[in-house]
Computed example of a mutant assay.
Amino acid sequence: MTTPSIDAQVRLDTHPSHPSAVTATLTGTQHRTAHALLTTHGFEPVNEHTLMLARIDHEEPYWAQQTAQKLADEEGVTVEIRPRLRAAIDEEWTWANYPMHWCTRQEIREVSHQANQLYEDIRSGRLVIHAHAEDGGGPPSRSVRTGAARASTSTGRITCGRSPAPSTPRPRPSPPSNASTARPCGPAPHPRPKRSSRPPKPALP
């Protein structure tokens, strides 16, 4: 059965100054419907007609494509993917020196998606880290963080290696120049990871 179309058009493109981030520009008399649908897929509003997708794992092109397909196939929204974003979607890359080297590309993407969800839950206040203590005696080797979700009484425990010194947070990408400014929405994505390459040559004695 064909999904009936609605009068809403979405144009997806890369952010002008942060290539891994993705912008969505909306037109049509039913653009508010598309606006609401995009927010359920991780896009954050800049204004009534513009949204932005920025992730800590630099996988915005992949998830933008997944969103575009769902909007078109399931919701009847007309979606245009601009050439720069299409090139980013088609680009094959992987993390250099990825610690779980046995994972496939799709498995790496699933792990990074879970990390991004955890980050967004903390940033939005849905998950609150309310305790931090060393685990075990002697020199500290592990740290334990206990988190509680605001929406429920459930708690979780995360055990990890000694935390590095906190770094200064980076601002999120600014809205495109043709959009009005809105509230900041977190740190900007770091530069996209480089393609895997041959190991560096050993230093000469």
Rank of each mutant, 00 (worst) to 15 (best):
Y62D: 05
R123G: 03
V144G: 00
S152Y: 08
T78I: 06
W93M: 13
R142I: 13
G147N: 08
E75R: 14
Q106V: 10
G156T: 05
G76A: 07
A87P: 02
P140A: 15
E80H: 14
H130I: 02
P99W: 08
Q66A: 15
W95I: 02
G76L: 02
A72N: 09
A148F: 05
P61S: 02
Q106L: 13
T67I: 00
G125I: 05
A133H: 15
S154H: 01
T78Y: 08
P139N: 15
L85Q: 05
L85A: 00
G138V: 10
A131E: 10
Q66C: 08
C103I: 11
R142V: 07
S143T: 10
P61D: 02
E120C: 06
D121N: 09
A133N: 10
Q69Y: 14
Y62F: 14
A115L: 14
Q69P: 00
R105F: 03
E107S: 09
G156E: 01
A131N: 10
P140M: 14
T146H: 06
M100S: 12
A72Q: 10
G147W: 02
E80W: 09
W63N: 03
S154I: 06
P83Q: 05
H101L: 06
E80Y: 08
L127Y: 09
H132R: 09
V144K: 10
I81T: 12
V77Y: 02
V144D: 05
Y119Q: 07
H113Q: 10
E134I: 15
A133D: 15
L118A: 13
G156V: 07
S143C: 13
Q69A: 08
D90H: 04
P99C: 03
S124C: 03
I89K: 02
A64I: 01
A87L: 11
G156C: 10
V144W: 03
V144H: 08
E60M: 07
S141I: 14
L85Y: 00
P99S: 11
L85D: 01
E75Y: 11
Y62W: 12
Q69C: 09
I122D: 09
A149Q: 08
R84C: 06
